[in-house]
Design a protein around this nucleic acid. Structure first.
Length: 429
DNA sequence: TCTGGGGTCCTAGGACCC
DNA sequence: TCTGGGGTCCTAGGACCC
């Protein structure tokens, strides 16, 4: 915390993109605009993004698509598989614009940033500048919520989104105390950032129903029934900052897992999947400059088919030496899989996790290291990474990861990678 | 009859976020 | 037929230390 910043009232903004995945798709395909549209999770499983029109039809977040698709399609809803290549690239563009319009930025998720706007005069006009620039440069629409703490900024953002009269920008600190009270009285307590279904139920049992109820709840009462997390939420609602803008830290664990497009029975197919997942996790590991000391492999049958024989097992391995080498990690993962694999089950999902991550600079020399070999491996990995970056994911891969990948996920309605491939540039006619 | 006090580390489970 | 994936933080309890 800088000493000068305490003089000025702290002002944070939470900026997020409206209906992010759906909006990305609509930027490049005008036929989607103004229509009910949903984007589905991996494997075309659940609804993870909805256009305003789809929300209006009552399609809920995280709904399994197969349960609602018939009705939704009858009402004119269009559905797309998720295209993370596109969303990741659009995210980077939005984040760059936001970062250029604020002294400090924390990228909080693929479509959200906290910005520190302390000291900037005319905050609401600045919010409108952010909005118009993002719209002009990317075609996406953002909403801006401004307040003295992160939790209040999240609330302000909710208001900016819900109440059209604010034009997508809302500063809660501009309200008179009485107006804030009546505003918070109208917001259910589970609109507050950090209050999920469980806490919501517990709070309701205590008679805390609205955001105002929570904000004005006696600290002692909260402490009795909950933990410091909820205490901090209450403090933050009252304008006492407990959460700071975070700078990017390397991940503490890296997970790669997928449901299969169909049931898998043979060990060889599971092995292909596990090797594929290790490859992608190890690439991320190297990208953040870490080494892993631990690895976990897990397999699972279809939990949604309880009439079928169920089996779920994971195995955790401590590596003899921290490493970022795909081949080494793959060997340990395959050995772990061999131990947990059981014949006669219909597997639906598998995954791997890398943990106990540490910086690569502190790599320890082992007593029996074959240093020339390690150096060759390092060159091999970085060559593969560069090739895959230049020619596209999977351009170079381990043979063991499989070529056809018959177990791969379903993505029946995938849009092109408009912004990251010359072959798929959108055409203007 | 009567059995301390303070600390760390690790793990599993719970809760939340997008 | 069909139900996502990737993270973080906190707490309680056990093991262990002096």
């Amino acid at each position: 915390v800088s000493s000068t910043s305490s003089e000025l009232p702290r002002r944070l903004a939470l900026v997020d993109v409206n209906n992010f995945y759906c909006s990305c798709e609509a930027v490049f395909n005008p036929k989607l605009r103004g229509k009910p549209l949903v984007v589905l999770s991996n494997n075309d499983g659940c609804v993870v993004s909805r256009s305003a029109e789809a929300k209006a039809l009552g399609i809920k977040m995280a709904q399994p698509w197969h349960l609602v698709s018939k009705e939704a399609k009858a009402a004119g809803t269009l559905a797309l598989s998720s295209n993370y290549t596109l969303y990741g690239d659009m995210s980077a563009r939005v984040m760059k614009i936001l970062g250029d319009l604020a002294p400090e930025q924390e990228i909080y998720s693929i479509d959200e940033s906290f910005l520190d706007l302390t000291g900037i005069p005319y905050l609401v006009p600045h919010g409108h500048l952010i909005r118009s620039r993002v719209r002009q440069w990317t075609g996406l629409t953002v909403c801006v919520g401004v307040a003295s703490t992160k939790t209040r900024a999240k609330l302000a953002n909710e208001i900016a989104k819900k109440r059209a009269e604010h034009g997508g920008v809302f500063c809660i600190e501009d309200l008179a105390a009485a107006d804030e009270r009546s505003l918070l009285r109208g917001l259910p307590v589970n609109d507050v950032w950090g209050i999920g279904p469980r806490l919501h139920a517990q709070l309701q049992a205590l008679g805390i129903h609205t955001t105002l109820d929570l904000k004005t709840a006696p600290a002692k009462r909260i402490r009795e029934h909950f933990n410091v997390v909820v205490e901090r939420i209450v403090d933050e609602l009252n304008g006492t900052p407990c959460l700071q803008l975070e700078s990017p830290e390397p991940r503490k664990q890296i997970v790669s897992s997928r449901s299969f497009g169909r049931a898998v029975t043979g060990e060889w197919e599971l092995r292909e999947a596990v090797i594929s997942y290790v490859s992608s996790a190890a690439e991320k590991l190297r990208d953040q400059g870490s080494l892993a000391r631990g690895l976990q492999v897990f397999v699972q049958t279809n939990v949604f088919k309880p009439d079928q024989p169920q089996y779920a097992k994971s195995l955790t391995v401590k590596l003899p030496q921290a490493t970022d080498d795909t081949l080494t990690l793959a060997r340990f993962a395959v050995a772990a899989l061999r131990q947990i694999y059981r014949e006669g089950f219909q597997y639906k999902k598998a995954g791997i996790m890398l943990f106990d991550l540490g910086p690569a600079e502190t790599r320890q020399q082992g007593l029996f290291d074959d240093t020339p070999r390690t150096e060759r491996r390092t060159r091999l990995n970085s060559t593969m990474d560069r090739a895959n970056q230049r020619f596209g994911r999977g351009a170079v891969a381990l043979a063991g990861a499989g070529i056809r990948k018959g177990w791969g996920m379903n993505r029946a309605m995938l849009s092109p990678p408009y912004t990251t491939s010359f072959e798929h540039l959108p055409e203007v006619s």
